Simulated scan of single mutants.
Amino acid sequence: MRTPVVLIIFKRPNTTEKVFEAIRQAKPPKLFVIADGPRADRPGETENCEATRAIIEQVDWNCEVITNYSDINLGCRLRVSSGLDWVFSQVEEAIILEDDCLPHSTFFQFCDELLDKYRDDNRIMVVAGNNFQYGRVRNQDSYYFSRYNHCWGWATWRRAWQHYDHQMKLWPKIRDEDWLKDILLDLSAVKFWQNIFQYTYEEKINSWAYAWTFSCWIQNGLSILPNVNLVSNIGYSLEATHTVKNYNDFANMPVGSIDFPLRHPLFMIRNSQADLFTQRNNFYDSRISVVLQQKIKHFANKLSN
């Protein structure tokens, strides 16, 4: 493979070791490692962070390893976004994995080829490894185009990441002028994402990913999603920052192999049927409202203490 790989780690050596082994099998020529620092009030976290970072020392193939380790805890939103700013200040494109995103071996070639094919096509913002269609095949090609930039194993270019704004400065204008209606064309989806973006803007949700979705949407950007799931999130546990329920539908989803040579779509039209299914099954109020309320309550308690 040709593309640099970015591995984002924190304090989970068990999942990190599995993802690292997948990267080792792919043998990228360059490996960027982004690590957040331990929280002082969490017993044992310093040791877990050190054990996780030690895994990176096992690189045994011809590879340039470049690390960006924070001594302090920056939190998910700032650590990931600042780390990717650092990566894309050095390279034009990269494949990105977090410490709980375990890819199938064909994920790397899938990203490698599509990063090359769409390198100069500003319509495409993301190449992702996730498929949440639960066996529904949306076309006879290897992938389809979507508005959803799933981020459990993905790839992008500097030209796309330059649009990322973790402060979401344009959100008040988008919100107040009802631009989400033009983007989503569905009032229930608009309501859902208005809440998500507002909470993220107010930093009541510590998420870089929602800010990235917002950045992609206001550029009218498309994502490439495979017709088979290529990455499984193995991190649903009490140790996780966000994925804490191990009975979630997304936990440990099976992965499959994608065939090569890839079958490319003959035209670039977003698959609205697939996106509607994703919105209704992955992103709807009754599914996550309790989680959002818990996050907001936790945030409020922190402010009052």
Rank of each mutant, 00 (worst) to 15 (best):
K169E: 14
S257N: 07
K169L: 15
L266R: 13
A240V: 03
S188G: 10
E239I: 05
A240N: 14
A240H: 12
A189M: 10
T241L: 10
R287N: 03
D165V: 11
S188Q: 15
T200R: 00
Q162R: 14
A240R: 12
W171M: 06
M268L: 07
W193G: 01
M253K: 13
K191Q: 14
N281I: 04
N281F: 07
N233R: 05
R263G: 08
T241G: 04
D259F: 02
I205M: 13
T243W: 15
N195P: 05
N195F: 13
D178W: 10
Y199M: 14
S257T: 11
Q219I: 06
I224Y: 05
K169V: 13
H264D: 12
I174N: 03
Q167N: 15
F283D: 02
K173M: 11
L187I: 12
F277Q: 07
R287Y: 08
A240Y: 11
F277V: 04
E203I: 08
D182W: 13
Y201F: 09
G221R: 00
L262Q: 04
T200S: 08
G221W: 02
F260Y: 09
R263Q: 07
L222V: 05
N233Q: 07
F250P: 00
K245N: 15
S188V: 13
N282W: 08
A251I: 10
Q198N: 11
F267W: 06
I224A: 00
M253I: 09
N206H: 13
N281W: 06
L184M: 10
Q194M: 14
A211H: 03
P254W: 05
L225E: 00
N246E: 13
N229A: 10
L180S: 03
N252R: 15
